[in-house]
Design a protein around this nucleic acid. Structure first.
Lengths: 220, 220
DNA sequence: CGTCGGCTGACACCTCATTGACACCGGCGG
DNA sequence: CCGCCGGTGTCAATGAGGTGTCAGCCGACG
């Protein structure tokens, strides 16, 4: 779990950093609001532990920005003031939790952990065609329920062809999509890979050849 | 927003019901744990405000069931006892927030609202796969009942892999999640750590390699 | 303050699936 | 019947990934 600690009181900041690290989290620490925004622009954090009163951009504004960014970071607000009014305000800003100082470290950890239980990443749809299925996220393909053991290039080519939904894909396109960098146009790589794919896919044939046009999977 | 209030003290229950309704939420109220489970089986709630000490099925068990069901409800635990230990325990059960009595109504509302905004936590508090279990909160992992003695990095990597639920996790992702700051992309750290993990996990192998795709735990 | 031991990550080396070139074959269209 | 485009068989080079080892670092402990 990736955590950003925004806290200007150096001793506390360091303590939080090492403490959370000991809990197995990947922790970055910054001492003011401006640095926080900078880090947030670069890296995606699961949880931001945010002192409300930090130099530079105010904690409230940092919080607003995080919420507005919709990057999916959860915010745990940390403050000296602990009136109910403050707490309600903080939560109203979009913070997901609120912990008044002084706090117990074990509780902070528990709350950060609760915030960090991520929703499973959105699954890109599973590609299908007849009895063929391919799951890009899991990197698994199967035909008629039987798992296919595909090499990376084979998998990539099949993925492209399935994604094209019946439209033919030229060798050049495949080269560009599946192979990195611009490979020389006279390569036989695609040809060879498609052949191996066909062998592994078995009968009846799934990959059709479109003369001069490349390869196609499924109805045109 | 749909809310279920589970509270046996009738006066408080009624107050919560009307109060939350006044805030524009759709509220159902039940007086004990068994009724709570019944309602939960029928209706999908965004947030469950759960008194820990209710008649019938205990609040802790209701909480566990909610989390296990993965129906997407968030839990706000409510209790008379307010020691840090209690709070940490409650959050460890999978509750998303914890509010000790007596509480301020405005704060309760703010917290319920915050929970409603939050994307559902779909990752259970204790990760499992076959005979492998890992408890992030207690920092304990075991296989077939036998405790594993893992280093922090090893633990972190295994945690990530289990949380991915069968999807492969790339070395870059692992680097980003488990190691802090931007580690250089050519590091051999992940490779080394995975090897040590494999050794400690023993047979049969749990961590599978997905060529060009990283590592995977469990069935795809 | 020195030493010990565990944790980490780099390096060198090994292995083998993967990959792509080459040479040759076959069938279809003109 | 001929020319091409594409399919096949084969093989050597490649490089991703696994393993053994070692040294630096840091905290624990005497």
């Amino acid at each position: 779990m990736r955590v950003l600690v925004v806290e200007d009181f150096e001793v506390l900041a360091r303590t939080l950093g090492t403490g959370l690290r000991r809990e197995g989290m990947a922790v970055d620490v910054v001492l003011d609001g401006d640095d926080a925004l900078e880090r947030l622009a670069v890296t995606r954090y699961d949880v931001v532990v945010l002192d409300r009163d930090v130099p530079g951009t105010h904690g409230d504004d940092v919080c607003r920005r995080i919420v507005a960014d919709r990057a999916g970071s959860r915010v745990l607000m940390l403050t000296a003031s602990s009136t109910v009014k403050d707490r309600v305000e903080g939560l109203g800003l979009g913070a997901d939790d609120y912990l008044p100082k002084p706090f117990d470290f074990a509780e902070l950890v528990a709350r950060v952990r609760a915030l960090g239980r991520r929703p499973t990443a959105l699954v890109p749809p599973v590609l299908e065609c007849d009895d063929l299925t391919l799951d890009p996220a899991r990197r698994v393909a199967s035909r008629g329920g039987r798992r296919l053991d595909l090499s990376p290039k084979e998998f990539g080519v099949l993925e492209c062809l399935l994604a094209a939904q019946g439209r033919p894909v030229s060798a050049e396109d495949l080269l560009e999509r599946v192979w990195d960098e611009a490979a020389d146009p006279f390569t036989t790589a695609v040809k060879t890979t498609v052949r191996r794919l066909r062998t592994k896919l078995g009968d009846p044939p799934v990959i059709h050849t479109v003369r001069e046009g490349g390869y196609r999977v499924g109805a045109p």
